[in-house]
Amino acid sequence: MSIKKETWTEIIHPKRNWLDVNLRELYRYKDLILLFVRRDFVSVYKQTILGPIWLIIQPVFTTLIFFVVFSRIAKIPTDSIDPILFYLTGITLWNYFSDCLNKTSNTFIANASIFGKVYFPRLATPISIVISNLIKLFIQLVLLIAIVIYQTQLNGASFAPNISLFLFPVYVLIMAIMGLGLGIIFSSLTTKYRDLSFLLTFGIQLLMYATPVIYPLSFTSGKLHTIISFNPLSPLIENFRYGCFSEGSFDALGLVYAAAFSIVVLFFGVIIFNRVEKNFMDTV
């Protein structure tokens, strides 16, 4: 027997503990996360003429369609807020969430060829997606500001920001956490049960209608109002609009609920992701 005990820097085991998430290792790969962000951003707009301008065109067209369909035809009120600004604020924030969820939800399947050849902390991929969507969001915010100036100066729309608007980064953070959490749960489950990816596309569409994006929460009543209030995304969008237009009231409880919900989702998401990432190559 040798007296000197052998030391190991790493031990590969069949299964990890539920909570064995190596955050230090993830931090060591921070450069990779940033390079993924860059890759996603650069590669999408290469060989397009308009480039990142597409990021602006999308919400503009959606807003116009919503304006025509929901405001002009369906005549859904937008409280006393200018409809264009109402839709654009909602869409900007909603798009961030839905993009995060959509893009992270196929992490494993879309990256199978890389994951099958080299190891790095798999969480780097969905995290990079959430960050690259942040850049998109930033560009869309610039658009929002431009439209706000246009609408207030030329069309006399009201824009009355209050102090709660400073919480905007918190809303974004909560949405990022929720989008990431749900996304990695879906990506983990779709490695085995592909059906879920169809369900998700459909589900995100439904969720938008269950979130006050195209109507104010005050428009709903009774059971419907209760259901939509339980949607953790509702207080985020409502509070953002309150911050912009000082219309209605600030929902502090809803914000706490949304934050708690997102953290719980991320917690379970990371656990499930962590379980799946070790063996998904055998099933994907």
Binding site: E6, E10, I12, H13, P14, K15, Y119, K278, N279
Partner: peptide, 12 residues
């Protein structure tokens, strides 16, 4: 890239 079903590998 994938994990073992049983046993372990110790790496230094």
């Amino acid at each position: 890239v994938t994990s073992p079903s049983k046993g372990c590998i110790k790496i230094n």
